[in-house]
Structure formats: C-alpha cells, structure tokens
Amino acid sequence: MTDSRDAKKNHLLAALPDAEWQRWLPQLEWVEMPLGEVLYEAGKTLEHVYFPTTSIVSLLYVMEDGASAEIAVVGNEGLVGISLFMGGESTPSRAVVQSAGQGFRLKAQTMKDEFNRAGPVMHLLLRYTQALITQMAQTAVCNRHHSLDQQLCRWLLLSLDRLQGSELVMTQELIANMLGVRREGVTEGALKLQEAGLIRYARGRISVLDRPGLERRTCECYAVVKKEYDRLLPVKLAT
C-alpha cells in the first residue's frame, strides 16, 4: 500500500484536494529512480507519469548526432510527462534521472481520465505546466546570453530547490550533457566555484557550501523561474 506521507513529499500530490487525493492514493506506485535511468525516450508513447519525491529528472533534447542539452529539471515540485494531458501521447524530449532517489508513478490512462474530469486537478496541472514552460523558455534565454559560470550556478540552484539536502551526486560528463557544453568547460566552471568557496566537488559529489553566494553569482534567470513556481504553485506541506 502506498505510504501517503512519502507520496506527499511531492508538492503536486500534496496540493491535491482531499477527494482527489483519496481517489489517487490506491493507484500511485512507489518506484526507485536510479541515476541515469531513462524514464522515456523521445517519440515513444508514455505509459506513466512520474512524481519525484527525493529524485530529480532532467528533460533533454537530443540531436541526431547524439549531442544533448537540458531544457528543464523536474523534482519534488512537479511531474514528468505533461504531454499526456496536453493532447499528445509522446514528447520530443528524453527524461533521464539526474539525481538518484525515489518517486511515484501513475498509469497514463488514469492521468488522462483525471485531467478530463475538468475539476481542480486540471487547474493544478495547467498551473504547473505554465511554470514548467517558463523554466524551458528561461533556460533557452540563459543558454544563449549568459556565461557557463552563470548557467552552472542557475542549474545548481534549481537542483537544490528540488532536493532536501545540500549535496548532489553528479558526474561532470552528465552535467556537460545537460548544459550542452564540453566536459572541460564544466571542470573549469566547477573549479572556479570551488575556489570561491561556494561548492566542494569531489568524486562526483557536489556539496553546496554557500547558497547565498551562488545566488549572487548567477544570472537573473534563476529568480525568474523561482518566482513563477512560487506564484503558481504555493507549497503545501505534507500531512
């Protein structure tokens, strides 16, 4: 049986009205989400939507030559698989677990049925979708106009917002794939942040030592995204 306390670590699930929550609870399936697991590939039919609780999922656009760039991150604030209720059965992006943890999933047909009830669930999911679109748009702007150093700070802060602690388990190669840059660029950027006393990076583990310092160093893009999420999706604590 699903543990309701664990499921409500996901803010969208925690925000469900009681009637919808009671209807969803028996259908939520707890899942492990190991680092690097692909939840869905571009163009494939989605069979589930995922609600991360202690994991983070990266949405990546993959080019024909294999190069990739991250377009958004999803953690305990949201869900993976919005195309199911936005009128499509698939998406052009790939969803990959960027920080290992757990989550819950719901069958695709169940999600579509819930959305089509046109009640509070639909409005909640549409507000989340608007916030996610803001993140995607701001990521595109950031990648075009801001330095790798600023992008790395933005990425770290967005990831931290979706975790309970201050440490990420992440290889330089995976960060490079997400930011769409060379691995050497990530190494140089991480060393700069470490020398400034903002992070400690060793053996694939990034510990954030000075979050206010990261916020001062990043560009405006992080604040724009955070403000929109806070406006559209006020956090409801798990009960």
Rank of each mutant, 00 (worst) to 15 (best):
residue 1 M to K: 10
residue 2 T to D: 04
residue 3 D to M: 06
residue 4 S to A: 13
residue 5 R to W: 12
residue 6 D to Y: 09
residue 8 K to I: 01
residue 10 N to A: 03
residue 11 H to G: 03
residue 11 H to K: 11
residue 15 A to D: 00
residue 16 L to W: 06
residue 20 E to C: 07
residue 20 E to H: 10
residue 22 Q to W: 09
residue 24 W to R: 03
residue 26 P to I: 07
residue 27 Q to F: 14
residue 29 E to W: 02
residue 30 W to Q: 12
residue 32 E to D: 12
residue 40 Y to G: 00
residue 40 Y to S: 06
residue 42 A to F: 01
residue 43 G to W: 05
residue 44 K to Q: 12
residue 45 T to E: 13
residue 46 L to D: 02
residue 48 H to V: 01
residue 50 Y to A: 05
residue 51 F to L: 04
residue 56 I to V: 14
residue 60 L to K: 07
residue 60 L to E: 12
residue 60 L to I: 01
residue 62 V to E: 15
residue 63 M to F: 14
residue 64 E to T: 12
residue 66 G to H: 08
residue 66 G to M: 04
residue 67 A to W: 09
residue 70 E to S: 13
residue 72 A to W: 02
residue 73 V to K: 08
residue 75 G to K: 00
residue 76 N to K: 11
residue 77 E to N: 07
residue 79 L to E: 05
residue 80 V to E: 02
residue 88 G to Y: 13
residue 89 E to R: 13
residue 91 T to R: 09
residue 93 S to Y: 14
residue 94 R to Y: 09
residue 96 V to C: 04
residue 97 V to N: 02
residue 98 Q to T: 12
residue 101 G to K: 03
residue 105 R to S: 00
residue 107 K to V: 11
residue 111 M to I: 09
residue 111 M to T: 11
residue 112 K to A: 08
residue 112 K to F: 04
residue 118 A to Q: 11
residue 120 P to Q: 08
residue 122 M to G: 01
residue 124 L to S: 06
residue 126 L to E: 11
residue 134 T to K: 12
residue 134 T to Y: 09
residue 136 M to I: 14
residue 137 A to Y: 11
residue 140 A to E: 15
residue 141 V to A: 11
residue 142 C to H: 13
residue 143 N to S: 14
residue 144 R to N: 10
residue 149 D to P: 00
residue 151 Q to V: 00
residue 152 L to D: 02
residue 153 C to L: 02
residue 156 L to K: 05
residue 156 L to F: 08
residue 157 L to K: 02
residue 161 D to C: 02
residue 163 L to H: 09
residue 163 L to C: 11
residue 163 L to P: 03
residue 164 Q to T: 11
residue 165 G to Y: 06
residue 165 G to N: 13
residue 168 L to S: 00
residue 169 V to A: 15
residue 171 T to A: 09
residue 171 T to K: 08
residue 171 T to C: 04
residue 175 I to F: 08
residue 178 M to L: 06
residue 184 E to K: 14
residue 187 T to V: 07
residue 187 T to L: 06
residue 192 K to I: 09
residue 193 L to G: 05
residue 193 L to N: 06
residue 197 G to E: 04
residue 199 I to W: 08
residue 200 R to Q: 14
residue 201 Y to S: 09
residue 203 R to T: 07
residue 203 R to V: 02
residue 206 I to E: 00
residue 211 R to N: 02
residue 212 P to Y: 08
residue 216 R to E: 14
residue 223 A to P: 03
residue 226 K to P: 04
residue 227 K to S: 11
residue 228 E to Q: 13
residue 229 Y to Q: 03
residue 230 D to R: 15
residue 232 L to C: 03
residue 238 A to E: 06
residue 239 T to I: 13
